[in-house]
Design a protein around this nucleic acid. Structure first.
Lengths: 348, 348
DNA sequence: GACCGTATAGAAAGCGCTTGCTGCGTTGCT
DNA sequence: AGCAACGCAGCAAGCGCTTTCTATACGGTC
């Protein structure tokens, strides 16, 4: 039924061992023999049996990428960059790896299950992207899993995610706190004193860090923060829309709204516009991430650009062992403030 | 070093066969025995060896999803919906499947290579999303691969992709032609007679079908099309921006621009605005797909909504054998015209 | 009490591949 | 010429699991 290595061996008049070695190219095989084997492979249209190969060799060519939300370009862009470096098809011949993206939906259990599935497949590497959930038991469980993966020879890299304690996973962390601070400083510099903040879901590192940056900026400027000025929600436009309405209800005198990310900011803009407020004349709006559509918003969004593609590519290279991990295994990736049309001086 | 089935068997004082049966749950095992085994599994922290299991059982729990561009929400939304149905974690216990997304980047070779990789892994199912490349040799190669996959027991489903001839792959096809026609009819109905069209890359089915719909609408209205009114480009905002400038250069009297998709439309809006033209007062703009950000554009985008999530979910269910394929294996999924602010009557 | 059906567990034969070791024919060196 | 060294190919032993077939033990029946 299916063609096996043995069939190829018979056809090429060599032993299965030789066929295997030709295919893996890590053992001297005479040119003429190799050619004969390759011809047989071609004629029989042979396809290696991955599981069998993985079993015998005790390694596989799977590389897992965990994302919180595959429908969000934030993750899509990183995943795309990672895959580009994993080589999938396109890498050096023979070294083809299957880069697979797993969508956790932000759920801790799913994250763990996927990690187990990947462990079960004896993945060559695993890359976790995006913020982590801040729950001690869960964090410990993930750390344990990562340790086991590492023990089994799987390379583990965190991209855009804080370092995992008690783990020697390489971490490329975004400076969410610094970016958040800079953004709010920009607003304060323009003269804003009453700033609403639409945060992401609680219990997520990204949410907390960005919020901390925001508050640090307020504190440094001597602005007392009103608890009514912060609302939590998901990382999507809908949440931004609703949160903005809520903020406006709580305090109609706000002159600026800082959003957890660009999608949220877009929702905020929609809500403000529908409320009859002009941006930035009446209310300034700022986002985070600088996703591609941000520049097309009207007015275009002031935001913090995160080098998603670059970070992803680097994480991919490290996972493939093609680039040295940063000293200490941890690197901080900084964002860049992009001042655009959605922020301006507050109304008098 | 690593814990194996045999270790668990020893610990639970049963044979490896019994452990396997407990884990797979498809054979009667006494409750007390089962419990003993499960306890041993737990205590030893045993994780099944996927490759070994796949080899012995001649099947795997991998499901592959091929997308053209994972950074594009168009694909992200579909992939997300598919994964939701595949069950990954979250499906029935024990039936966990690893849904993996493979990014072809629109390259035919990569598509083929990923298909081979999936074949090599003996994937349980493969879902191809998005338009196909219209190149006879390549189409034949893909069809051949799909046939082989099907022969090997892999379920093949096409989602948002035209049927593959000589294949019995189930196809859920978007009615791009119908949607394109309806969109242009809407514009013509408003009074437009000089319409620019920013098409996607040539040689892609999606591009051709949408363009055909557009032309059909023009033809029916008796509007002679000027070849200068069509420009090809990639499916991103940058391409839309540049194409629009080119269209304006070629014919400044255009009163409407129809874009290949929403991202392109966003780029078009930016270009028009920078050229000092108002939307829709001076020029109307229309997109396609109705991605989440489209409603937030200013003015919000008139577009054709494609039920991406629904189609993806359905494709996922069919791939998992949880839903009957449509009669004949082919279903057409229609889009819905969403008339919003970016289109209006042409300037006098 | 012998007989049989049923429920449950074990033995063992692979699944298709990789790889350490062995063996042989050849080349290179003295 | 003689010996070591080397290049290349084959043998065979698994890798860790699934599954068919077989064995055992029980309970009930006549």
């Amino acid at each position: 039924m299916t063609v096996t290595l043995a069939d190829v061996a018979v056809r090429a008049q060599v032993s299965p061992a030789t066929v295997s070695r030709v295919l893996n190219g890590n053992y001297p095989v005479a040119a003429t023999t190799r050619e004969r084997v390759l011809r047989a492979v071609d004629e029989l249209d042979y396809v290696l049996n991955g599981p069998a190969s993985a079993l015998a060799a005790a390694t596989s060519d799977l590389v897992g990428i965990l994302v919180n939300d595959i429908a969000d370009p934030f993750f899509g862009i990183m995943a795309s960059a990672i895959q580009g470096e994993i080589g999938g098809p396109g890498g050096r011949a023979g070294g083809e790896r299957l880069a697979v993206t797993c969508n956790t939906g932000g759920s801790p259990e799913r994250e763990l299950t996927y990690l187990t599935l990947l462990q079960r497949q004896r993945a060559a590497a695993v890359i976790l992207t995006g913020g982590a959930v801040e729950d001690a038991p869960h964090a410990a469980a993930v750390a344990a899993k990562l340790r086991k993966l590492a023990d089994a020879g799987t390379r583990v890299v965190l991209c855009g995610r804080p370092p995992a304690p008690d783990t020697d996973a390489v971490a490329l962390t975004f400076d969410n706190r610094g970016g958040g601070k800079e953004l709010t400083e920009h607003l304060i510099g323009l003269g804003h004193r009453r700033l609403g903040y639409i945060a992401g879901p609680e219990e997520r590192t990204t949410t907390r860090h960005r919020l901390e940056g925001h508050r640090a900026a307020l504190a440094e400027a001597g602005i007392a923060e009103d608890p009514r000025w912060t609302v939590h929600g998901r990382y999507d436009r809908r949440a931004g829309y609703e949160a903005t309405l809520e903020l406006l209800r709580r305090d109609p005198t706000l002159t600026a709204v800082v959003a957890a990310n660009d999608s949220v900011a877009l929702g905020a803009c929609a809500a403000l516009r529908e409320s009859g407020l002009r941006i930035p004349a009446d209310v300034s709006v700022a986002g985070f991430d600088d996703l591609p559509f941000s520049i097309d918003a009207v007015p275009s969004l002031t935001t913090v650009r995160l080098p998603l593609a670059e970070a992803g590519a680097r994480a991919g290279r490290i996972a493939m062992g093609r680039e040295e991990p940063p000293p200490g295994g941890i690197a901080t990736v900084r964002g860049e403030l992009m001042v655009r049309g959605s922020t301006g001086v507050p109304r008098a």
